[in-house]
């Protein structure tokens, strides 16, 4: 869910590794980030925080659900829907805010904060 810079790269990479991938986003322009040879087969226009759209995107058969839109709250809702309503085995979600990332980790979601990584690499660069 979320075909921004992160989502499009993750999806393309997983596809290259041989996985079956579907990527959803509300904006059709976002799919331009996917290389044209893959675009049609994996793009699904829909809202990842709406149960019906998730269902239509094929979430019932998914082994992994990844929520990487730029909005923390949308990711949190989508990820918890995937886990609670569709029983997806692995759910990974992006949380920009490190405080919320910690909270969702403690609630059992795999939450990843890009801000934490970015801060670390900047500090590393400064100290080098």
């Amino acid at each position: 869910m979320g075909c921004g810079r992160v989502g499009s790269l993750v999806a393309t990479q997983l596809l290259k590794e041989g996985h079956e991938v579907r990527i959803m986003d509300l904006s059709p322009e976002s799919f331009l980030r996917i290389p044209p040879e893959y675009r049609d087969s994996i793009a699904f226009q829909g809202d990842g925080t709406v149960q019906d759209d998730l269902h239509q995107a094929g979430i019932d058969d998914a082994d992994v659900f990844i929520a990487v839109s730029s909005h923390d709250t949308q990711n949190a809702l989508a990820a918890q829907m995937a886990r609670t309503l569709f029983n997806v085995e692995r759910v990974i979600c992006r949380m920009n805010d490190p405080a919320r990332q910690q909270m969702y980790e403690s609630l059992g979601l795999e939450a990843v904060s890009p801000i934490t990584y970015l801060t670390e690499s900047i500090l590393n660069a400064v100290h080098r």
Partner: peptide
């Protein structure tokens, strides 16, 4: 809805 959920959580 996503905001309301996260606010409460």
């Amino acid at each position: 809805d996503a905001d309301n959920l996260v606010i409460c959580q």
